[in-house]
């Protein structure tokens, strides 16, 4: 199971535009699946799917892959934003993608700890205590956004 550092070092894989596009497609699928699951975990909250953010990472520029837009998920309660999830980067050494979570004044990082092209293993940690990592679940996310 390859990691991002192996991938970017071309140790066991070949970097080219086709590979990067496949990785972006896989990233988008994982984000969509996660957002759907989160929406199901909190049916009492409103869901705003309309926002997007631009993905334009250094390796994409190096191989001529144009920027793409990725979805931002907002959970709302009585017209007040409870939480906003935004993709923070795919090619991050040590993980297979990061989603930034803002919940009021609090920040969390949601990380996929799986290898590339593997089923995701999402975790969550407070921004100010990044060693306090726990698996992402309805319960751990509820604690973060309560």
């Amino acid at each position: 199971m390859l990691s991002v550092i192996e991938e970017l070092s071309e140790d066991g894989t070949v970097l080219d535009a086709a590979h990067l596009r496949a990785r972006i497609d896989d990233w988008r699928r994982r984000i969509d699946d996660l957002y759907r699951e989160i929406a199901e975990w909190f049916p009492h909250l409103g869901v705003d799917w309309d926002g997007t953010t631009v993905m334009d990472e250094p390796v994409m520029r190096a191989y001529g892959v144009p920027p793409v837009r990725l979805p931002v998920l907002r959970l709302v309660e009585a017209d007040t934003e409870v939480a906003a999830f935004a993709p923070g980067g795919l090619w991050i050494i040590g993980v297979n993608g990061r989603i930034d979570l803002s919940a009021g004044q609090n920040r969390f990082v949601i990380l996929d700890k799986a290898g590339i092209f593997a089923p995701p293993r999402w975790t969550i940690a407070p921004g100010l205590d990044r060693l306090a990592v726990e698996p992402l679940s309805r319960a751990s996310l509820a604690r973060a956004i309560q």
């Binding site: 970017l8 070092s9 250094p58 390796v59 090619w91 050494i93 990592v133």
Partner: peptide
């Protein structure tokens, strides 16, 4: 591999968007 990555950073050549420092620690 980490040593090679450090050398790449030192020479201004890195393709990574970031490094999750706590995971690497």
């Amino acid at each position: 591999r980490y040593d090679g990555w450090r050398n790449g950073i030192a020479h201004g050549a890195t393709l990574a968007t970031g490094i999750d420092v706590p995971t690497v620690i």
